[in-house]
Amino acid sequence: MSNAPAPLDNMDIALPTPRQQSWAMAKRHLGLQIGLAIVLVATFAALFAPLLAPADPYAQDLTARLAPTIWQEGGTWAHILGTDGFGRDVLSRLIYGTQVTMIVGFGAAVFSGLIGTTLGIIGGYLGGRVDAVIIFLINVKLAMPGVLIALSLVSIFGGSLLSITLILSLLFWDRFAVVTRTATQQVRTREFIAAAECSGASKSWILLREILPNIANQIIVIGSLEMAIAILVEAALSFLGLGIRPPMSSWGILVSEARDFMFYKPHLVLIPGLAICILVIGINLLGDGIRDVTEPQGRN
């Protein structure tokens, strides 16, 4: 390393290297660890729902309607979280609901990530007219009221898992595009890209092999954010009756169905809502943790 006079940092102090700091932070980053744990538990529940659920989530038993939870008076181990208005086991419906939540959330994050990242790095790398068109698309997307568009599209295309995932993807790509576009513009000016260009690498090769790995951590962070939002919107659509259709189990449907009994069985509303909260907090903590650990300017 050269020691010829070089521009100085603001405070003029040699700090530990980024890698040292990242590792030290990851080991002490409680938020990252809690977030990871919550997301892993939810993924596990979704993958192994049939094995974990104590009962059939669709089996109605009108003789055992609105059974209390285990901590309430008269609760039994047969229905740890009680039963709903049709006598279905709440815990089982909750576990099966994880499937819808995780599939829609993860699927929407991946698809919207694909759309947004493609547009973002193309715009950021090529610049000029292509970039102007992509910025315009982003502006048009931002100007449209997302939730209402989602409601309209679901009412047209129906509430299947696939259609909801795709519709949400179409709504959430803009943040990916904005962030990857800026990140690409920054990466693009660095020396190794110029080196690759000079050595005759094709544009697609540079985009995929040089630029994408360098903005991957930012994509993951946005992905976690969009997954959290997609989960919230899916729940809201299902709650309004324009999402996943009953009797399938989604956390939004659980809240919606429990609304009728809210005044005397509030736990039926509380439990699925808290589940959404905890999962979304977990995903956000994980995303924030990844950002804190990998991106030096995020450390405030």
Binding site: L232, V255, M262, P266, C277, V280, I281, N284
Partner: peptide, 17 residues
Amino acid sequence: VFGSAVPNFWFALVLIY
């Protein structure tokens, strides 16, 4: 963190309750 994680339809029901 809590504010951006709470589903608003559910939060509304909790407030009502």
